[in-house]
Protein backbone atom coordinates (compact mmCIF):
# COMPACT_ATOMS: atom_id res chain seq x y z
CA UNK A 1 0.00 0.00 0.00
CA UNK A 2 1.51 3.27 -1.04
CA UNK A 3 -0.07 6.70 -0.93
CA UNK A 4 0.48 8.96 -3.92
CA UNK A 5 1.56 12.59 -3.44
CA UNK A 6 -1.97 13.58 -4.62
CA UNK A 7 -3.57 11.51 -1.87
CA UNK A 8 -1.24 13.04 0.69
CA UNK A 9 -2.14 16.49 -0.62
CA UNK A 10 -5.84 15.72 -0.21
CA UNK A 11 -5.42 14.45 3.35
CA UNK A 12 -3.31 17.49 4.19
CA UNK A 13 -5.94 19.78 2.74
CA UNK A 14 -8.70 18.14 4.80
CA UNK A 15 -6.59 18.78 7.90
CA UNK A 16 -5.71 22.28 6.68
CA UNK A 17 -2.00 21.52 6.80
CA UNK A 18 0.45 23.21 4.45
CA UNK A 19 2.83 20.50 3.22
CA UNK A 20 5.75 21.04 0.87
CA UNK A 21 6.23 18.77 -2.12
CA UNK A 22 9.34 17.28 -0.53
CA UNK A 23 7.44 16.49 2.63
CA UNK A 24 4.67 14.85 0.65
CA UNK A 25 6.96 12.04 -0.37
CA UNK A 26 8.18 11.39 3.16
CA UNK A 27 4.68 11.72 4.63
CA UNK A 28 3.32 9.41 1.95
CA UNK A 29 5.83 6.79 3.10
CA UNK A 30 4.98 7.25 6.81
CA UNK A 31 1.24 7.13 6.21
CA UNK A 32 1.64 4.09 4.01
CA UNK A 33 3.48 2.32 6.81
CA UNK A 34 0.60 3.07 9.17
CA UNK A 35 -1.87 1.72 6.63
CA UNK A 36 0.25 -1.41 6.25
CA UNK A 37 0.03 -1.94 9.99
CA UNK A 38 -3.75 -1.51 9.81
CA UNK A 39 -3.88 -3.99 6.95
CA UNK A 40 -1.94 -6.45 9.09
CA UNK A 41 -4.46 -6.05 11.92
CA UNK A 42 -7.28 -6.36 9.42
CA UNK A 43 -6.06 -9.84 8.59
CA UNK A 44 -6.75 -11.06 12.14
CA UNK A 45 -10.03 -12.90 12.62
CA UNK A 46 -12.07 -10.62 14.90
CA UNK A 47 -15.45 -12.29 14.50
CA UNK A 48 -17.12 -12.20 17.89
CA UNK A 49 -14.88 -9.43 19.22
CA UNK A 50 -16.78 -6.26 20.11
CA UNK A 51 -15.31 -3.14 18.48
CA UNK A 52 -13.34 -1.10 20.96
CA UNK A 53 -14.35 2.53 21.20
CA UNK A 54 -11.90 3.39 23.95
CA UNK A 55 -8.86 1.68 25.45
CA UNK A 56 -10.16 2.17 29.00
CA UNK A 57 -12.61 -0.49 30.14
CA UNK A 58 -14.90 2.06 31.72
CA UNK A 59 -18.15 3.81 30.98
CA UNK A 60 -18.66 7.56 30.62
CA UNK A 61 -19.35 9.37 33.88
CA UNK A 62 -22.16 11.86 33.80
CA UNK A 63 -22.32 15.26 35.45
CA UNK A 64 -25.31 17.05 36.95
CA UNK A 65 -27.06 19.63 34.80
CA UNK A 66 -25.86 22.72 36.64
CA UNK A 67 -24.45 25.99 35.37
CA UNK A 68 -20.98 26.24 36.91
CA UNK A 69 -19.28 28.59 34.45
CA UNK A 70 -19.69 32.36 34.60
CA UNK A 71 -18.89 35.11 32.13
CA UNK A 72 -15.13 35.41 31.65
CA UNK A 73 -15.30 36.83 28.17
CA UNK A 74 -12.77 39.60 28.70
CA UNK A 75 -10.10 37.19 29.88
CA UNK A 76 -10.85 34.64 27.18
CA UNK A 77 -10.74 37.25 24.45
CA UNK A 78 -7.58 38.94 25.69
CA UNK A 79 -5.38 36.95 23.31
CA UNK A 80 -7.67 37.23 20.27
CA UNK A 81 -6.28 39.21 17.34
CA UNK A 82 -9.60 40.91 16.61
CA UNK A 83 -12.70 41.41 18.75
CA UNK A 84 -15.62 43.73 18.29
CA UNK A 85 -18.79 44.15 20.35
CA UNK A 86 -18.01 40.93 22.14
CA UNK A 87 -17.61 38.92 18.95
CA UNK A 88 -14.47 37.18 17.77
CA UNK A 89 -13.63 38.53 14.31
CA UNK A 90 -12.28 36.16 11.69
CA UNK A 91 -11.55 36.52 7.98
CA UNK A 92 -14.83 36.61 6.06
CA UNK A 93 -16.43 33.24 5.42
CA UNK A 94 -19.23 33.18 2.90
CA UNK A 95 -21.37 30.20 2.11
Amino acid sequence: MSLSPEEVAKIAHLARLAVTDDDKVALGRDLSNILDLVAQMDAVDTAGVAPMAHPLEMAQRLRDDRVTEGDRRDRYQAHSPAVERGLFLVPKVIE
Binding site: E84, F88, L89, V90, I94
Partner: peptide
Protein backbone atom coordinates in the same frame (compact mmCIF):
# COMPACT_ATOMS: atom_id res chain seq x y z
CA UNK B 1 -21.45 33.41 12.39
CA UNK B 2 -22.55 36.99 11.75
CA UNK B 3 -21.61 38.06 8.27
CA UNK B 4 -22.86 41.62 8.24
CA UNK B 5 -21.29 44.83 9.25
CA UNK B 6 -17.79 43.92 10.41
CA UNK B 7 -15.78 45.73 7.69
CA UNK B 8 -15.15 42.62 5.67
CA UNK B 9 -14.72 40.31 8.66
CA UNK B 10 -17.09 37.72 10.10
CA UNK B 11 -18.20 37.97 13.72
CA UNK B 12 -18.33 34.78 15.80
CA UNK B 13 -20.60 34.24 18.82
CA UNK B 14 -19.94 30.98 20.64
Amino acid sequence: SLHEDFHGMTGIDL
